[in-house]
Structures are given as C-alpha cells and as structure tokens.
C-alpha cells in the first residue's frame, strides 16, 4: 500500500495539530511551574497559527478574528494571570508524577491511540480540515485527562484543563469552523474567567497546605 501524500495544506495543518499533541506530551513531564505555563503558551500559539492557516487556506475570514482573540487571551492574558497570582509559590512541581515518565508516556500513547482510532468511527466530516486533525483533537483531549490524573500538583492539573480546552478548540476548528465568532469569543472569555478562578483556588490551596501538591488532599472521603 502506498499512502498518497495528503497535499501540502492538509499536511501542514495536520502537522500543526500533531505538534499540539506533542506539546501536550511535554506537559506530562514538565518540572517547573514556568515550564508548564510556557508549554501551554506554545500550544496556544500553535492553535492560533493553525486558525490563521485555515483562514487563509479555506477563506474563512472569521478565523482571523478568532486567532487574534485566542492570542490575546491564551498567549498573553492566561499566562500573565497564572504567573502573577502564583508569584510567591514554590516553582518546583517535579515530584508530582504518579508514575515514571516512560510509563506515563506509554500510557498517554495508548490512550491517545485509542482516541485516534475511536474518532475514525464518528463519521464526522470537516469542511475545512483533514479528518485526521479531529483524531488528533480527540487524542489531545484524552491525553489532557491523563495529565490531570497522573500529575499530582495543582498547576499541572489546571494546565491540563486549559490544554483540554485547547483540544476542544482544535476540534471546533475542524468540525465547526463556521461557529459564529461571537460564540467563540464568549467561549474564550469564559475560559479567562475559569483561569482566574483556577488561579485563585490554587492560591487558596497554597495558603492552606503550603505546597502545590495535591497528594495531601485526602481528608474528604466516603
């Protein structure tokens, strides 16, 4: 079997989507608060670039607007809020892995692969992007769940949620590129509110337990 090349537009967009997934894998093992936030910023930059590529390649001008808003919020505002509110915390989150890096990556690969193959059965077709990007989006969503589960520190868990949102944004680019800009912007502002609340709660957590680890959160059971 010779796989025909997908065409440079499809190839480039899929490659960008896969790059987001690779960054997501990076989050599994980031050891510093700043590194974690930076990875998120990188992922957000990639999805903004992807939005621009789709806007140009498939002539969906609203996506320019989306890209601008997503840069303003995810690349500028979110990291700013996170880092500002967490200035006084310990920057080290290295010891929060529930398992070894290699097993974590293997687990994530398995989960991501499951997402890849499951999404092939959805029967969703995209007007603007190759279907494989949807598979990547589903994989990103699943891997961010892995991230939230295997990392036991509040920062990684929060970033896991934001990355989950990035995965959903990617999915929305794929199957719902026509979503009115107003709604997209509303989603983004919602995310910003969530980020502020996450940051506040991280601070509350830090004040209460003097660490970013969630290993001590075992009081409430049953």
């Amino acid at each position: 079997m010779v796989a025909a090349p997908p065409g440079s537009y499809a190839g480039a967009t899929t490659a960008l989507a896969v790059l987001m997934l690779v960054i997501e894998f990076g989050m599994l093992q980031a050891t510093l608060l700043r590194a974690q936030v930076r990875l998120y910023v990188a992922q957000s930059v990639v999805i903004s670039v992807l939005a621009v590529v789709v806007a140009v390649g498939r002539e969906v001008p609203e996506l320019f607007g989306l890209a601008v808003f997503s840069v303003a919020l995810k690349v500028v505002a979110v990291p700013l809020v996170m880092l500002r509110l967490l200035r006084r915390t310990d920057p080290e989150i290295a010891g929060s892995r529930a398992m070894g890096v290699a097993s974590m990556v293997l687990l994530a690969v398995v989960v991501g692969a499951f997402g890849f193959f499951a999404s092939a059965r959805f029967g969703l077709v995209s007007p603007v992007l190759p279907t494989a990007t949807l598979a990547v989006a589903v994989a990103i969503v699943l891997v961010s769940f892995v991230l939230m589960i295997v990392r036991r520190d509040v920062v990684s868990q929060a970033i896991g949620f934001f990355a989950l949102e990035n995965g959903v944004s990617l999915a929305s680019l794929v199957v719902a590129a026509g979503l009115p800009l107003l709604l997209e912007v509303a989603f983004l502002f919602d995310l910003l509110v969530a980020v502020v609340v996450f940051a506040v709660l991280i601070r509350v957590h830090h004040e209460q337990s003097e660490s970013l680890s969630t290993a001590g959160l075992t009081e409430l059971q049953g």
Binding site: P6, A10, F25, V105, P130, A132, A135, V136
Partner: peptide, 22 residues
C-alpha cells in the same frame, strides 16, 4: 525519558499515517 520521547514521536508518526492524515 529522552529516548521515550523519541519513541512517542515515532509511534505518532505511524498512527497519523495509518489514519490517512499523513
């Protein structure tokens, strides 16, 4: 970890190819 990362990239390559994305 370093070689595991390489492994992950390689697996992703095969998977994306298998899916027809590329």
């Amino acid at each position: 970890e370093f070689v595991a990362a390489a492994f992950m990239l390689a697996v992703l390559a095969v998977i994306t190819l298998y899916l027809g994305g590329g």
